[in-house]
Design a protein around this nucleic acid. Structure first.
Lengths: 159, 159
DNA sequence: TATTGTTATACTCTATAACTATA
DNA sequence: TATAGTTATAGAGTATAACAATA
């Protein structure tokens, strides 16, 4: 891919990363890291991280959601979700109620406290998100979202 | 941000993530995870990860680079770089040579083995990268790269 | 004093596999 | 047998703080 534009953040004096800049993966990694650090800070007042915030958000939108469905929605292995739910339940932000029709399953619900925390966290997350994409014009933003979705969709892990 | 297009990968039956889809951060996280998993697989034959590959690449482009500069280039804390360099040195892919003009510093160089491994890994990484952005038209790719760079550049952590 | 490399710690995320109880 | 939740383990990434040697 010759002639790709120089879009990267400057490196320390005299250091070049031309070969790396040629990789979209590298740009994605750097942008993701920067985004994550900022979003972490924005969610810190609520003791939430990207993961726990997304979990609360999905449960809020889908009351009665099952852990396995939530794991799919978060793109997390079921096993790795348990600890997250344990922590949220210990903080009394969610309830895990046994599913009446399937003895194996649970249904997830936000508690009142969970609803309250999510409402405030959502404001902070949206504010930070808007701040992040503030520098993009609407067309660029739409293209970015579409490109990210296509990349995820066509990844072999999700095929 | 009303009317933002539905760009996300479908969730399990009946589950919605409208509120999350509204966050660019969430799209970035999902796309990044998918990309990373694929790139990991592509680099696995060379026993490299995104991090170690990028380290070799930067050292290759900047012979004599110092660890602190490399840490900046990789957006990694100096302390967290030590183990990475230890591993690469143990595999005889890099040399850490004391800096002649500064007793505190080191200079990093690829060994012959490092050059050979990087050359092959680079091919695999570029092939995988191309595969990933294959679904994007050139305009979308350029916009994506530009958007990622702007996002990183304007993040508070790098301001 | 400030910087370089280093060590140490702790937490998050990811990957993998196996276990149990239900279906 | 298959699935849901769980447990366990290991490795990678990140954040933070401190330290000795050198500038």
């Amino acid at each position: 891919m010759p002639g790709r534009a120089r879009t990267h953040v400057p490196l320390p004096e005299g250091i070049t990363d031309a070969a790396l800049r040629d990789l979209v993966s590298y740009s994605m990694k750097r942008a993701f890291n920067a985004m994550q650090a900022d979003m972490l800070r924005a969610l810190a007042p609520f003791d939430l991280r990207l993961m726990t915030f997304a979990a609360l958000s999905l449960i809020s939108e889908n009351p009665g959601l099952r852990p396995s469905q939530l794991a799919d929605g978060l793109a997390v292995e079921r096993g790795n979700l348990v600890g997250i739910l344990d922590a949220l339940a210990a903080r009394n932000l969610i309830d895990r109620i046994p599913c009446p029709v399937d003895g194996r399953a649970q249904t997830l619900h936000l508690t009142e406290a969970g609803v309250a925390v999510l409402a405030r966290a959502r404001q902070a997350a949206r504010a930070q998100d808007s701040r992040m994409v503030d520098v993009l014009d609407p067309d660029a933003l739409a293209t970015l979202l579409s490109a990210l979705a296509k990349i995820e969709e066509h990844a072999r892990t999700r095929a």
